[in-house]
Simulated assay, not measured.
Amino acid sequence: MRFIWTFIWSLFLSGVLSYILTSMGGTSFNLMHTLVLAVILSIAVFVLSEGVLKGDNKA
Rank of each mutant, 00 (worst) to 15 (best):
M1Q: 04
M1K: 03
M1V: 05
F3D: 05
F3L: 10
I4S: 10
I4E: 06
W5H: 09
T6A: 10
T6F: 02
T6P: 00
T6H: 01
T6Y: 00
F7Q: 00
F7I: 01
I8H: 02
I8T: 06
W9C: 07
W9V: 06
S10R: 06
L11D: 01
F12W: 09
F12H: 05
L13F: 14
S14N: 01
S14W: 00
V16S: 01
L17N: 08
L17I: 07
L17A: 15
L17K: 06
S18F: 06
S18N: 15
Y19G: 11
Y19W: 15
Y19I: 02
I20G: 05
I20H: 04
I20Q: 08
T22A: 07
T22Y: 07
S23Q: 12
M24H: 05
M24N: 06
G25K: 01
G25N: 06
G25W: 00
G26H: 01
T27I: 09
S28V: 12
S28M: 09
S28E: 15
S28D: 15
F29V: 00
F29L: 01
N30F: 09
L31N: 06
L31G: 02
L31A: 14
L31R: 05
M32D: 11
M32E: 12
H33K: 06
H33T: 10
L37N: 08
L37F: 09
L37P: 01
L37W: 02
A38M: 02
V39Q: 03
I40R: 04
I40L: 15
L41I: 03
L41T: 10
L41D: 05
S42Q: 04
S42H: 07
I43D: 01
I43P: 03
I43T: 07
A44P: 03
V45M: 06
V45H: 09
V45N: 09
F46G: 07
F46C: 09
F46R: 02
F46A: 15
V47R: 02
S49A: 15
E50D: 15
E50Q: 14
E50L: 08
E50C: 07
E50W: 08
G51C: 07
G51E: 08
G51Y: 15
G51W: 13
G51D: 11
V52A: 13
V52M: 07
K54M: 11
K54E: 13
K54A: 11
K54Q: 14
G55C: 04
G55N: 12
D56Q: 08
D56T: 07
N57W: 09
N57E: 14
N57V: 13
K58Y: 12
K58E: 13
A59N: 11
A59S: 12
A59L: 11
A59F: 11
